[in-house]
């Protein structure tokens, strides 16, 4: 009976809201619990400086995590994001320092470099049917090496021209932070509401079925890797603005932090399932953990051990959540 009524009427706002809360409630609870825990352990945790640290940490990782969510949804992987970010920052740094280019042109160039690297990842793995793991592992080395060559292995000091991107404005948030939020929202809409999003989920679920339904998966896959490259380019600029410099060593290991954030958000490494909003919560979990552990005085090795445990536990919890959801339906 209830099925009949809900079928004829479009689902109301309340059920949509319930669905949305249901999807994110676990992550929100985890976040709140972490904040409460760190708040009780350290009297300095609830302070402006903690907030600024976290807000500064987030944009670069969040922007790359958005692109990585897309890549994991199509059952791909990209290990090169950290290096591509460094290369994009390096090229932007050279452009601004040595060629005296204005910031907006440097941003343009950085994003172009990222787009090119990402598109190459996609084109090579699609054209030769190679595993993305291998292709992007190669790109990780290529981009890092290129970053060293471009900068002569020296950090390029850019200075104030780029700093404002990461400086707090009114309300204490930086332009980079606002940019990240805008990208998260936009990417969420594309994933859930556009043809492109529907195709990504389809390709991640069953690529051959998509092909035989008359959808060519290849351009979509290339586009997804290119988007992630573009995001890595943008993240490079943001990273450079935090340091006021282009460091060729920046972002070593960043790919792992990015993938961890996406996975904590519940996106499946097997493809076909994922959410950009959840990814953003995943980024928050990682950075709150990072800042909180620093506040309570945990050593670097301890921080890494705890972070590792959180990643594994998060995925186990997500698995149970998914099972329960399947049983209910």
């Amino acid at each position: 009976m209830s099925d009949m009524t809900s079928k004829s009427v479009s689902p109301g706002f309340r059920s949509t809201l319930r669905g949305a809360l249901g999807n994110y409630i676990g992550l929100v609870i985890a976040l709140v619990a972490m904040v409460a825990l760190f708040g009780s352990l350290s009297e300095y945790f609830f302070s402006v400086s903690t907030f600024v640290t976290i807000a500064n940490d987030i944009p670069a990782i969040a922007i790359m995590a958005v692109g990585m969510t897309y890549v994991l949804i199509i059952a791909g992987i990209d290990l090169s994001v950290g290096s591509v970010m460094a290369l994009a920052a390096a090229v932007a740094g050279i452009a601004m320092v040595q060629w005296q280019w204005p910031l907006y042109l440097a941003i343009f160039v950085a994003m172009g470099v990222g787009l090119l690297a990402g598109a190459l990842n996609g084109i090579i793995s699609v054209a030769w049917c190679l595993p993305a793991f291998i292709v992007t592992l190669g790109m990780l080395e290529i981009a890092r090496g290129s970053a060293y060559i471009a900068t002569g292995s020296r950090t390029q000091y850019i200075g104030g021209a780029i700093e404002w991107l990461s400086s707090p404005m009114l309300g204490g948030v930086s332009p980079a932070f606002i940019m990240a939020i805008a990208i998260v929202i936009g990417a969420h809409l594309v994933l859930t509401r556009s043809v492109f999003g529907r195709y990504m989920i389809g390709i991640g679920t069953n690529e051959e079925a998509m092909r035989l339904a008359g959808v060519d998966p290849r351009p979509i896959k290339v586009a997804v890797y290119a988007i992630l490259g573009l995001m890595a380019g943008l993240a490079g600029i943001i990273q450079a603005s935090r340091l006021e410099a282009a460091d060729p060593n920046a972002g070593i290991g960043a790919e792992l932090v990015v993938i961890a954030s996406v996975v904590i958000g519940g996106t499946s490494l097997m493809g076909g399932r994922g959410s950009v909003i959840s990814t953003f919560f995943g980024v928050l979990v990682i950075s709150v953990l990072e800042a909180g552990l620093a506040q309570v005085g945990a050593s670097e090795p301890t921080k890494r051990i705890i972070t590792g445990c959180v990643i594994i536990v998060a995925v186990i919890l997500d698995m149970y959540r998914e099972r329960r959801r399947n049983r209910r339906s």
Partner: peptide, 18 residues
């Protein structure tokens, strides 16, 4: 199963795919 359907996706998604 292998070539026609997106098994984990809904009837709705599978129907409008083409």
């Amino acid at each position: 199963k292998a070539q026609g359907l997106l098994l984990t996706q809904s009837i709705r998604v599978n129907t409008t795919l083409a």
